[in-house]
Amino acid sequence: MAVEYRVYPAAFEYFAPRTVDEALELLGRYGDEAKILAGGQSLLPMMKLRIAGPRCLVDVNRIAGLDLLRREGDRLEIGALCRHADMVESPLVRDLLPIMTDAARQTADVQVRHRGTVAGSLAHADPAGDWPAALMALDAVVRIAGLGGRRTMPLHEFIVDAYSTRLDAAEMVVGVSIGIPAKPSGGAYVKFEKRAGDFAVASVGVQIDLEGDRCRSVAVSLGALGPTPIRARAAEDVVREAAPSADRVDRAAELVREAAQPFADTRGSVEYKRHLAGVLFRRAFAAALDRARGRQVETIHL
């Protein structure tokens, strides 16, 4: 061809396998020189900036069946091609796990939500990503396929550091499985961003299971407040097995601030982010509790 096209990413070999096994075979052949292309909303910007330069892209978008979103018994199964927008729109997700609807609606913008995937967000493990933070407050398990077979791993073990997971080069994430909390329960994810559609300055997810007026179990996860999402377990202990009171919430907010390990960057100082962690915890806790009590509340204002 005579036309010299403008290009930004470095050249790569492109494959669009039709089955997981074909994809795994390619990963086996190219090893860590291959990258999986699902939504591409983090990978393409990195390739354009040449922060990433894979020799081979394995586009999994044409693999049938990876876009399934369904309830199986007491778990919600999310295929690797479920997009953020699928989560925003799903009545099933809204009913069973409103914390996930919150996270989906606050992720980037509608164009990115149409392409970006939940599973890809976990595999990318951005410290400020919304899905790692929100799902860490739930019983979330990553489903992994490799040439040797399939395995599962709890999300808190899967993400080991900023942008680092336990996924081997020849493996791919094929889905995410979420335990459905028994009702009465409720969750909320609250995010603070500097610009519309940006990554979080800080975010907090809270999931509460009630028994009478008592919080039978409470999970508090912090996003963008450390290299990985953090469970604020000391704060959880203060509100667990108790009726929520102003004193307990105050004490828990203090422990959330202590659990946060923010770093200073253009989005804010350490002190600012720590303060924000406490504020967002209060908002998320209040919304999660309201929802557990059957009230409809919004965590973002439209």
């Binding site: 909303q41 393409l44 910007p45 509608v110 164009q111 990115v112 149409h114 392409r115």
Partner: peptide, 23 residues
């Protein structure tokens, strides 16, 4: 050119996407 501004938005199978962030 960095997937932020949306000037390149087109509809792919009816869905708005940023055409600078897709091959």
């Amino acid at each position: 050119e960095t997937s932020l501004c949306g000037a390149c938005t087109v509809l792919v199978d009816g869905k708005a996407v940023k055409s600078c962030t897709m091959f």
